[in-house]
Write a protein that binds this DNA or RNA. Structure first.
Lengths: 156, 156
DNA sequence: GTGCGTGCAAAATCTTTGCATACGC
DNA sequence: GCGTATGCAAAGATTTTGCACGCAC
């Protein structure tokens, strides 16, 4: 039974948001959003990976539609688009429970960890207000070296 | 006289760094770095723009070489690579006077402002150390709406 | 039934690479 | 002179788009 398309928890919200713009709730759109829900909040996927994961789950969705749907879901606020360097953009679920969060990226192996920080958000807000910008969201990308890669350096 | 290739202030450092790796100081490399110095520290250029600006300045440097040189200068630490969403990567001069700084990006018009914040850096460092990562640098990208675009909303 | 969304393949971007030549060292 | 860097053009990678058909509403 777990073979069937995962039903997005956001299903209702998604449908309403779509209909508001005269758009439609299609199986493909449910599958893409469902995949992110299934994987959980901390997962970062590229368009290619979304496409591949859906194929593995017996869901044929064309790559073009994956691209179109990802952009739609970002515009609608269901996904966030990440730019953590190295090879193409990635996407993650935008959960309301978990507001702005930030990324530690190991520049050697690409391992990525997330964290939250109220002081980062405050600092961003302060800087924005200072010149009259209205803050929407902020993302801190920290380029760093993870413990394993630090050890590799020593072992060399 | 101002027609000649601008001489990078980093010229010496660049040459030394290059020679350390058996590499060479070529006119093209001086021109690319010189362009960023000429434009100043707050300027963000794409590879295509660098190429175009050099042509305008009567400096024929092939686009392929621009790409190769940008990557080289990033690896050597003379430039920083930015990922502020929307259309391709951009590069900016990495000045020692001006360590980690952050970007406010208007999501409507793309206007970008820079700021610095000690508390952002502290928060990034704290998060990194907590899980054993060694911090290299951090960049906060704040998606926001600039005053002009806020006014446009009201005027609508 | 209407018209938005999809799949497919072609096109458009953006970036990298192979190879012969040029030139920094 | 040796070997790296460049220019060119072709190849790669990623993302977008045109069009006929299918399906959500």
């Amino acid at each position: 039974m777990s073979q069937s398309t995962p039903l997005p928890r956001f299903e209702g919200t998604l449908e309403i948001g779509l209909h508001k713009g005269g758009r439609r709730l299609t199986p493909q759109r449910r599958k893409v959003l469902g995949l992110f829900e299934d994987k959980g909040a901390g997962i970062h996927l590229s368009a290619e990976e979304v496409h591949h994961q859906l194929l593995k789950a017996n869901s044929r969705v064309s790559l073009a539609t994956v691209y179109r749907t990802l952009r739609l879901l970002v515009d609608m606020g269901f996904l966030h688009e990440l730019e953590l360097s190295e090879g193409g953009h990635r996407f993650e679920l935008a959960s309301n429970d978990q507001p702005d969060h930030h990324h530690l990226v190991c520049v050697r192996c690409g391992r990525t960890e997330e964290f939250e920080s109220e002081s980062v958000i405050q600092a961003g807000r302060a800087a924005a207000e200072k010149i009259g910008f209205k803050l929407l969201e902020s993302t801190l990308n920290v380029r760093s070296v993870c413990p394993e890669c630090q050890n590799d350096d020593l072992a060399k």
